[in-house]
Design a protein around this nucleic acid. Structure first.
Lengths: 215, 215
DNA sequence: ATGCCAAAAGGTATTTTTTCCTGTCCTCGA
DNA sequence: TCGAGGACAGGAAAAAATACCTTTTGGCAT
């Protein structure tokens, strides 16, 4: 959120990030060296003083920082661990039912016009996701030989999720979670020709959710 | 980057996002309805006028938007197609058949040990990919309601690929490409209960390959 | 065509932020 | 220790943004 307190904290954090004092940062940006003094963050009557957007633009440029970095400082209290620098991937998003209506695609099939949302692709949102490549036909029709499954060990799992399961005996399989209760886990096969399977919790080493699959 | 032009564009985009005019947005935020008039974005002497940081905080709060959303508008030119971020995402990759062998996962199910390759996730490497969200059950068992399909219009398409097709009559559908020959295209339904469909090339406006699906 | 209301252009007064300036304190090197 | 320069507090003037207000324009319904 954008608050008076957070904006000033971000300015302090940005200055520190570039080994500057608040007054040094102001000077570097071509502003008066007293511009960011703590003594000037509230006006005489106690009303919060907000630095102008123009001043913010100047300090971001003067430090060769970026708007993203500055926003991270706004959002993360200085004492907290700075969020990792990873950039979230965003692509335009549209509901399938709307896709047939006019105006969403140009003649060549590229997104066009208004009405597109943006969606972030979470596959790389954590440092711990990994990929498994399908081998064989046992997971048809869902997954074909060569398809790549992105698995996120930390993701929350609910009934109906597609998961990778490793048993204590060393078997690794991709299934749909039917039920997870105390002491037992029920899995539906991705291939309808294969039967449901049940395991006691003690037989399961870990369960991890499949979050994306290549096509 | 934070520039005068982009900040105003973001305000316009935010207003449009919430089906407001610029003056409606200002009013909603408790500001004067003329605050964001285009006529007031340059002062009389032509100097750029920057909206104050406090005003931005107010519009973000009044729309229940977020700083992240606002920054997206700052960075994405409104008139341009929303862009995918170009990143090379790499995750560890292992063949499914190897996954059961010892040494590839630690006790909690995270990748461990040697033998992992790295795979780049190509979907986000291009600027033209977009996402379609599945609605309804017509694409079961492959795609469930709410699943997100990443579509890459420029990707090469071969027999057996899962594709999105738009017909000249405006129908958009997800299918498996069975055959594409001169003058005709044959599509197998993702739902086995639905019949194959054939189109003349002239009936098809575009075909684009589905490259990833959420799970 | 007319009426109503919102959006937008335009102008002035008020408020808020920056700039300019001064003084004090702190740090560091000679 | 002393001096220089930077950091910081504080005050007044100048510049810039908002608030207030009016008029014009545009869109929509009747």
């Amino acid at each position: 959120m954008l608050s008076h307190e957070r904006v000033w904290a971000a300015i302090d954090a940005l200055a520190e990030r570039y080994s500057l004092s608040a007054s040094g940062l102001a000077k570097k940006a071509g502003l008066d060296s007293t511009a960011f003094n703590k003594s000037k963050r509230l006006s005489v009557d106690g009303r919060p003083r907000w630095p102008s957007t123009e001043s913010l633009a100047k300090i971001i440029e003067a430090t060769n920082s970026s708007l993203e970095e500055f926003i991270q400082f706004v959002e993360a209290p200085k004492s907290a661990r700075p969020r990792s620098r990873e950039i979230q991937a965003r692509v335009p998003l549209l509901g399938f039912a709307q896709a047939g209506a006019g105006g969403f695609f140009d003649d060549a099939g590229f997104p066009a016009g208004e009405g597109w949302d943006l969606i972030e692709l979470p596959a790389r949102a954590t440092e711990t996701s990994y990929a498994l490549q399908v081998q064989g036909d046992s997971m048809l029709p869902l997954y074909r030989n060569g398809d790549v499954l992105i698995v996120e060990p930390g993701a929350a799992i609910r009934k109906g999720d597609r998961v990778v399961v490793k048993t204590v005996s060393g078997e690794v399989m991709a299934k749909v979670l039917e039920r997870q209760a105390q002491g037992a886990i029920e899995l539906v096969s991705l291939n309808p020709e294969h039967p449901k399977r049940q395991f006691k919790s003690a037989e399961v080493e870990w369960v991890a959710r499949i979050v994306w699959a290549s096509q």
